[in-house]
Design a protein around this nucleic acid. Structure first.
Length: 355
DNA sequence: AAGACTCACAACCGCTGCTAG
DNA sequence: TCTAGCAGCGGTTGTGAGTCT
């Protein structure tokens, strides 16, 4: 049983709005507000339009102080950073850009920014791929497990600009041409008190770890086993698939962090699409918290800052959980609950992320 | 000059989450 | 607790303008 349609489809006008319709809608809303009911609004003012259509027209076009086109370099950077951090949450992104609507940003991203960024990505990855090929060739000649396959850093696509997430908020100089320079971003994050996945080898327990980090590494001694490391906001866990109750976890899920076993299956398939970069690095979430002025120590709170294009609020924790706790993580966490507390591979640590 | 193609943007569609009854 | 109705969101489509061949 489907939901009843919000309006009589046969009797509503579709397509572009006429100036008369715009004027009617604008005049009414400016005088009376929406009355909290978009569905009833078109009837009140004699418009043969769907309520949803009226809402969209108002929010995206008629509302005061709407800016169209002419995105600045700074806005570009903010959009890119946030997209790489949180994905296509256009309303959230729009909330950071006064006068911009989610629809506008979405269109701008799809038509221009994505291409701009992909061009940059492809260049960088082509160079990286060439390096990896060389290394693989060298390693295979000596009948050894390729170094690249055992690399501690394979937990992530190593040098993604996504690390740059939230940088505009932490560093106003987003117009800096080095904005995408990974080294400078790295050092900035380190200054913020964080560290990177390739530091994991030094210590299983984080002192300053960005909130969530699910990674998989192959084991050279036991080629058919793998280990999964979780550095969440409140715990650091390492599980070996050969001896953990979590060994049944579907390997396909490992890709949640943008890497995992699939990465080994043919470097030809080295990801080039932007959406594969999104969520690939959870480090930025901490930065994003700062970006939204969240208190990272109180475990949540409201991040309503009143700037959303549609005025809604959302809980940061809800958003983060939807971003950073994909299925693998929740499955792992379920498994972890069944682990004995004295399991040497399970250790608690407090989240001491960016202070 | 005209048809083909591409791009940018407005608008629509369908799903999800929230909330009042 | 359940359900219906609504607002809001994100993906997709339609269309007009601009560019290329």
């Amino acid at each position: 049983m489907g939901r009843a349609p919000c309006c009589d489809k046969a009797n509503v006008k579709k397509g572009p709005w006429s100036p008369e319709e715009d004027a009617k809608l604008k005049a009414y809303i400016e005088q009376n507000g929406t009355g909290g009911n978009w569905i009833a609004l078109p009837q009140k003012i004699g418009l043969k339009r769907c309520g949803k259509s009226c809402r969209l027209r108002w929010l995206n076009y008629l509302r005061p102080n709407i800016k169209h086109g002419g995105f600045s370099e700074e806005e570009d950077n903010i959009i890119c950073s946030l997209y790489l951090s949180i994905g296509s949450r256009w309303s959230i992104i729009a909330a950071q850009l006064p006068g911009r609507t989610d629809n506008d940003i979405k269109n701008y991203w799809n038509t221009r920014l994505k291409k701009k960024l992909l061009g940059k990505q492809r260049k960088e990855q082509a160079a990286r791929r060439a390096t990896l090929r060389k290394e693989l060739k060298r390693e295979s000649q000596s009948f050894m497990v390729p170094e690249v396959m055992n690399q501690k850093n394979l937990n992530y696509w190593p040098e993604l600009p996504s690390v740059a997430a939230a940088m505009p908020a932490m560093n106003a100089s987003t117009q800096d041409s080095n904005f995408w320079d990974e080294e400078s971003l790295r050092s900035m994050l380190v200054k913020q008190g964080g560290r990177f996945s390739d530091d994991h080898q030094e210590s299983n327990i984080s002192s300053n770890v960005y909130p969530l980090d699910v990674s998989c590494t192959s084991n050279q001694d036991h080629p058919y086993s793998s280990s999964v490391n979780i550095l969440s906001s409140n715990s650091a866990v390492s599980i070996n698939s050969t001896d953990s109750p979590c060994s049944q976890l579907p390997s396909a899920n490992y890709a949640v962090s943008g890497a995992g076993p699939s990465i080994y299956q043919g470097l030809e398939e080295f990801p080039v699409e932007l959406h594969e970069l999104v969520y690939s690095n959870n480090h930025q979430l901490a930065g994003l918290k700062s970006f939204y002025g969240m208190d990272t120590t109180n475990g949540g709170g409201n991040w309503k800052n009143g700037a959303s294009s549609s005025g809604e609020s959302a809980s940061w924790e809800n958003i983060v959980s939807s971003l950073a706790y994909p299925q693998l993580v929740s499955e792992l966490e379920t498994c972890l609950q069944s682990l004995p507390q004295d399991n040497s591979s399970y250790e608690d640590s407090s989240y001491l992320g960016p202070q």
